[in-house]
């Protein structure tokens, strides 16, 4: 009997679309290093990242309080995005935001932080004409602002409204987090911290000042705290029906 693969994230579909193109892309983008997978373990900072690691985040909404926004504040401090002098509120950057959700039929309500979900199959990277939107080998979705032309197609394609466009000249950026007018930006999963062996700023702040609702780690490593936890509790991804296989998982709804 034929058994149809009913997983929405069926990788065959991806292979169909991407396979033939990948050959061309490898030759076209010499800046992107394609490296053979190596055993999991600490990486030297001078070595390129590999797909042996898959960074992920588990957010426990049962510990996330409505109205608490320590994660948002920590992100703003870390990366320096906040009210820009000229931008209207709807033009200001939103790398991470708190969303309150309520089921109108049952009354059940919960609160959660929403940011770049670091999809395994990121629509932003699919639609980006120059390849500025891309997924690093270890699963972190980033914008290479050097080749971003500011077309904003990634923002149209993102299901989570996780990306922001910089509407005006920026000054006083952090050395590790460049941002500039005319390019698109989003949560980097604090890639500068991760590369230095630390956890993202939001996770740190949530543990120190709020409900410790965020757990960061390597989803590929069965011994990691996050891998163990998600093997024991029910988790979900936002709009899991889209089959994007995000790196950010939620528990509690």
């Amino acid at each position: 009997m034929t058994r149809y693969n009913d997983r929405p994230d069926d990788p065959d579909r991806r292979r169909l679309l991407g396979g033939a193109l990948a050959v061309a892309a490898t030759a076209i983008a010499p800046g992107i290093l394609l490296v053979a997978p190596r055993a999991a373990g600490a990486r030297m900072p001078t070595e390129p990242v590999t797909d042996a690691v898959r960074w992920g985040l588990l957010i426990d909404t049962t510990k996330c309080e409505a109205g608490c926004d320590h994660c948002v504040a920590a992100c703003q401090t870390e990366h320096g995005w906040t009210d820009e002098p000229l931008s209207r509120p709807d033009q200001d950057a939103q790398w991470i935001r708190k969303v309150e959700v309520r089921d109108p039929r049952t009354g059940y309500a919960f609160s959660l932080p929403m940011m770049c979900q670091h999809c395994e199959y990121p629509p932003c990277a699919d639609v980006c004409p120059t390849g500025a939107s891309f997924k690093r080998a270890d699963g972190i979705v980033l914008v290479d602002k050097h080749i971003c032309i500011g077309c904003r197609y990634c923002m149209v394609a993102c299901p989570y409204k996780a990306r922001s466009f910089v509407h005006e000249d920026i000054e006083g950026q952090k050395a590790y987090s460049p941002r500039g007018k005319g390019t698109v930006e989003s949560c980097t999963l604090c890639v500068h911290r991760v590369d230095a062996g630390r956890v993202p700023a939001c996770v740190e702040a949530c543990a120190a000042r709020a409900g410790d609702a965020m757990l960061f780690g390597d989803l590929n490593d069965p011994e990691s705290a996050i891998a163990k936890r998600i093997s024991q509790i029910a988790t979900t991804r936002i709009r899991a029906d889209l089959g994007l296989h995000q790196g950010v998982l939620y528990h509690g709804f």
Partner: peptide, 22 residues
Amino acid sequence: DLGRPDRLTVAMTHYNFKSIFA
């Protein structure tokens, strides 16, 4: 209307062949 119209050459030299825009 691009955020960085000065980078038109980038659009001409960097292609992501999965993108409808490209």
